[in-house]
Every structure is written in structure tokens, then in C-alpha cells.
Design a protein around this nucleic acid. Structure first.
Lengths: 364, 364
DNA sequence: CTGAAAGCGCTTACAG
DNA sequence: CTGAAAGCGCTTACAG
């Protein structure tokens, strides 16, 4: 919002006058570039610094970036509020990674909190990248976007505009390739499921979110890979479930069918399954194992006792900023940048060998 | 970092050309100020917006602030990392309030993560407002500062420079008055201590942090007020303690002296006191009451069972942004802005009437 | 080695 | 109601 401060700040011109040199010399000296196009004698350099000190001169950043180009500001855009009231911030880990990388790259972070504007009724609207048809993000050099609630049409428009940005989380648009960072959901899922099989589980079931996001589908793919592989899985069904639902009847059916290990998309759902199992008189993990493919699902805190894959949010945040830096450093290379972070694993207490399981993986 | 994107970004001049109006009209329309010095017909306004959309115009921040206009960006400066690794963010509540107010005022938030630069040894330095003697915050209209670890010399310089900012938390500098928002620590403390007295506690002790911040001193003042008042307190000692210390011996001494209620600066310390009491064979609160004057103290999670005052961080965050908005709206009024938020109260389970206490407050 | 000048994109009196 | 012009403070060719 500008500088309506009263006493005018000293400028390079003031310094130049006092030091009795030309403005260009001041610019060069202050920026430590008095050895290139503009040269200044050691004595001149001293005079300039002396004048700087005497006047308390400090460069005007706005002018500097106007004349120069970049402003060293990375945008961070989320459709949802960054800091929710319930203290359970979905974004916290990602932001930790983003902040770390930003510090490393010496740039600032612009959070787009003023992107909602007002609807025709005067009420608040949803946040959006384009406000009155104008790309709000443009004030930054480039941006990192994150969140589950994205507007894919806007994203497509953003890709089309050529504005440099990276999404945290894989997003495939019908049109146009975009840069993103994702995690190795497929491989990590396969690994976990194979581990289940290695413990002796032969009949598994995946309770998959009915919302088919890229991550959910990748996990499903990893599950299939493991089931179809030679890890020894005999049956690996998939059931679509609503979020936060405890499918007790479904669970009973699965157990009847001989399922000894239930795989869920997220740890909260896994916790629900465990509750359901308890209600059915089953012990977890003695009678039934439950594992989760993700560690978070919205508003409830993650249950640390669930055996679960961990989404590497912090790493993804850092990588996103670094991909963006690369995008900015080599604009002539227009290829979308991609990075894949490695999921972590939390041991938890809900996975063990099935009852009366073969003690060793079957030999072939 | 500017926009070194290949095709030059459209400027107001481009918009003006396409809309067939003069640049000043574009400026006025885009800033919603086409009802003042510059007037434009509804039709003209439409043409301008249409051109803006068509070209994908968005204002250049640097130019805008150079020319003296605002950029609708509020800076947020913290000496510590905003998003700590341990997920236990000291700043979370404050930021929630800041974000809410920013949304309300339709402005963005600039997080100064690139303010560390490198020391002479190439290692990271502490964050600072002035980088190479330059006020980094200047790119914003004004800033909100927060955190415990401030550099008061920098703050003094910032006050001197006239840059508009508001501190979250009271900070009194030797020189120069600054704007801040604080909480009613003194009154809230007096209220809580009087409540203890009302329950029958006659001999109290305050275990005060040895670090005498403004908040700590205000709490102490409130404690003294309550003790010297007519609430019935007979003795109200103060002991300085180190953070995270469990002063078991001190506790034993106090109990020997007939103290029935221990007051601490923060809830973690109160939890330590409770542990110490247990070790001494005392039940809390049956034998000894423990209350805290604040709900947080660094890296450990707050214990919700402790009877405690609650620092209204979220409110303070929101108020800080609003004070800043006022500072920017009326720059001619150079008086420092101040606001005081009201502390909350958490019942907890560590306060009750002392053993064999008089059932009613003493009559006078 | 040094200086005069253009230009970055915007806002804002000022003149019509 | 609209336009031409100055100026914000800096960087960077360019000319001496």
C-alpha cells in the first residue's frame, strides 16, 4: 500500500549529490557491481559508502524490481483457508516444506487471502485465482498451489496463460500439461500390500474412497499390482465407500468371506473399520488387520496407532518450490516440471500375521 | 522475481489502447476509483474491463507501489519460522486471526521467509527486518509483526523510519512509541486470583518466569493488585523460576508455609507443579490448587486439564490487522494505535476450595 | 573510468 | 467527463 510516510527517504540521487558522483556509480557501488560496465576507483567507492551511511540511505525495493525484473516473491494459493480455526491445519506440513525451501532460496511467500472478493449479493465468494478476470497471482514471480478443492477450469486457464506455477499433488487436466509434485502412491501401496501378503494375508479387501482423485486411483493401481503379482494374494476385492462411513455390514460380509486384512484410503477410515471390527467381536490386529494408505482425511486428527503410509507433505512442499525456482530460472524450457516424493511408513499397531497364518511366505 | 516470461506482460497502456481510452482512465477503473478526480461512464468502465480480460492484464506491484499507490499487501514478519517442524505452531492461532481479517479487508499476506540472507561464513543468519541495511518490509503497505524473539533495536529503527506496523503483543521500547495489540493480562489475572481468594485461598504464591516480558510483568501486576485488594488474600509471594523447571523443593517449602494455591505463568509450568505436588504426596486440587495465567509456553502441547487463562491469540491477530488498516487509512494521525483483547478462561480441573476452607468470602 | 538519459509500469495532479 | 505529462527510484545500455 505504498509509502505515505512523511519525511522523504534519501534516494540514490541524494547519495550521488553528497558523494559528488553520478547516480549510476551509486547504483553500481551499492549493488557491488562496480567492476563491470561501471567502474569506480576505490576512493570513489569509499566516498559513496560514506554518503550512504551519512544519509541513512536504503534502496527502494519497488523501484529496484520495477527496473530490474524479479521481486523474489513466490505465491502460495489455496482454495481453502490456510489457517483453519480448529488448529488442525491440513496445510501445515506442506507449508513447513514450502517455508524451508523459500528460506533456502531467499524468497518471500505471498499468501493469497484477499482473493475472494464479494458476490453480487455482497457475500463472500469462494477464493479464486482470477478475480474480475484478472490473474491475481501475477504479482509474484510464480506460485505454488495446493489443496483438495481446486477449480480445474481455472487451472486450465492458468496453464494456458503461461504463468509459472507448480501444484502440490498430481492434477491431470484434459487440456494442457502442468507442473506438479506428487508422491509414489502406487509403489508405496504395492509395497505395503506386499508386506501384508508376506505376513501371510491371502484374502484382502480395499475400501476405496468413492471420490476418485488422482491419488486414490494411484493407490488402487498399486493395490491391484500387488494382488496380481506373485506375493501370494488370493483375493483382492475393492469396495467404494463414502468418507467417514463405518461399513459394519460390509465388514461382516468381508470377514465371512475370509478377508483377514482390510486396506483403506486413510487412517481415519481405518480407525472406523477397527471400531466396526471391535463391534463385531473381532480383535485388531489379532483377528483382523487394518492398514491405511494415507495419514490424513480432513478434519479429524490422525490416529497414530493405525499402521499407515505417510504422505510426504513436507517434502512435497519443498520440492514444489524448487521446481518453481527451476521454472523461473530456465523459462525457455517450457516442459512441465515433475517430481515424486517418497511416502513414509508408520508401523502402528494394526497389522500382524493373520490367525493361523503360514509362518513363511510361500515358496515358489 | 518479476516476470521474465517470454511475451511481455500487458500493461495499462496496452489496455488503454485496446479500450481506446487514456491510461489514467484505466488506472482509475482498475482501482475502482472512477468516481473521484477521474470519471468514466458505465460504458467506458465496461470497455476497460473487457480489454483487461482480453489481454489478461494484471497490475505490476512494483510499479504501483513506486508510484505511491497501495498494493493491498500486508506483511507478516516473524523472527522465528512460521511453520515449525513439530506441527505445534506457536503462531497458528494468531495467523488464523490475521488471515480472517485479511480476507475481510481483501488483502494478501506476505510472509517474509527470505529475510535471513547469509552470514560472512555463508551460513544462515537470523531473520531480520533490515537486510544489508534495507527495510525488507517496504514492499508491503504495512506489516504485522509477531513472535517472542524480537530484536528491539530493529524495532526502534522501524519506528523511527515511520513504516506502518503493528506488533502482536505489547512491546515498550525505550525510544519511540509503537502500535501494538495486547491482552488484558493484568485485569484477567486479578480476576482469576480474586476467584481463587473467593474460593477460600488465603496464602498464594506466584511462580513467575525469570524472563520479564511485558506480559509477565502485567500478570504480576494483576496478581499484586488482587493480593493487596480486599479479596482476602493474606500472603502472596512471588518466586522467579526458570522455564521448564520443576521446583519440587520450592514447592515443598511453599506448602510448609501454608500456601494452598500456586499460580504460574503458563500451563506447562502449572503441569510441572502438579507433577511435583503429586511427588510430594499432595492431591491436586484437593490439597493444592494450581492455576496458570497463560495457555502456552513453547514447544510442548498445552495441557487442557489445567485451570488457566487463555491468551486470545486469534482475536489479537485480527485486531492487529485492523489497527494496521486504520494506520494506513489515516496516515496523518501519527499516534500509535493500541488495542486490548480479552483473555479467555479455561475451567480445567486444578482449582477448587482449599482443604477446610471458609465456605464464604470473609465479610467486612 | 564517468555522466546524461531512457525506461520499467504505475498514480496523480493538472489542463482541457 | 477525458487526455497529456510529470514523476516515483532505480537499472542499464550508451555516449563520452
Amino acid at each position: 500500500m505504498g509509502n505515505p510516510r512523511s519525511p522523504r527517504r534519501p534516494t540514490q540521487a541524494d547519495v550521488a549529490r553528497l558523494a559528488q558522483v553520478s547516480p549510476s556509480v551509486v547504483s553500481a557501488v551499492v549493488n557491488g557491481r562496480h567492476d563491470g560496465a561501471v567502474r569506480a576507483s576505490e576512493q570513489t567507492v569509499q566516498r559513496v559508502w560514506e554518503a550512504v551511511r551519512q544519509l541513512g540511505y536504503s534502496p527502494n525495493l519497488a523501484a529496484r524490481s520495477l527496473a530490474g525484473g524479479r521481486n523474489n516473491i513466490v505465491g502460495v494459493f489455496t482454495y481453502e483457508a490456510v489457517f483453519p480455526t480448529d488448529r488442525l491445519s491440513f496445510f501445515h506440513d506442506s507449508l513447513t516444506g514450502i517455508e524451508e525451501a523459500a528460506e533456502e532460496l531467499d524468497c518471500h511467500l505471498l499468501l493469497f487471502t484477499g482473493s475472494r472478493g464479494r458476490g453480487q449479493d455482497g457475500g463472500r465468494r469462494r477464493r479464486s485465482i482470477y478475480k474480475d478476470g484478472v490473474n491475481t497471482l501475477q504479482v509474484t514471480d510464480g506460485a505454488v498451489l495446493l489443496g483438495q478443492d481446486e477449480d480445474r477450469e481455472e487451472l486450465a486457464a492458468l496453464v494456458g496463460s503461461g504463468f509459472p506455477f507448480v501444484y502440490i499433488g498430481r492434477r491431470e487436466l484434459g487440456s494442457g500439461e502442468m507442473s506438479y509434485v506428487t508422491a509414489d502412491y502406487t509403489a508405496a501401496t504395492r509395497g505395503l500390500v506386499e508386506r501384508c501378503a508376506g505376513l501371510g494375508h491371502r484374502r484382502l479387501a480395499l475400501l476405496r474412497s468413492a471420490i476418485a482423485s488422482e491419488a486414490v486411483l494411484e493407490r488402487e493401481a498399486g493395490y491391484f499390482e500387488a494382488c496380481r503379482g506373485d506375493a501370494g494374494v488370493e483375493s483382492g476385492a475393492v469396495h467404494l465407500v463414502e468418507p467417514d462411513t463405518v461399513p459394519t455390514e460390509l465388514l461382516a460380509t468381508l470377514v465371512d468371506q475370509g478377508v483377514t486384512c482390510v486396506v483403506t484410503d486413510d487412517s481415519n477410515h481405518a480407525a472406523s473399520v477397527r471400531s466396526g471390527a471391535t463391534r463385531l467381536g473381532l480383535r485388531v490386529p489379532e483377528d483382523l488387520s487394518v492398514v491405511a494408505l494415507g495419514d490424513f482425511a480432513g478434519s479429524r486428527p490422525d490416529d497414530p496407532t493405525i499402521t499407515s503410509l505417510l504422505t510426504p507433505r513436507r517434502e512435497m512442499g519443498g520440492q514444489a518450490v524448487r521446481l518453481l525456482a527451476d521454472l523461473l530460472a530456465r523459462p525457455q524450457d517450457t516442459a512441465p516440471r515433475r517430481a515424486v516424493a517418497t511416502c513414509g511408513m508408520r508401523g502402528g499397531q494394526t497389522l500382524q500375521a493373520p490367525p493361523a497364518a503360514p509362518s513363511a511366505p510361500r515358496s515358489r
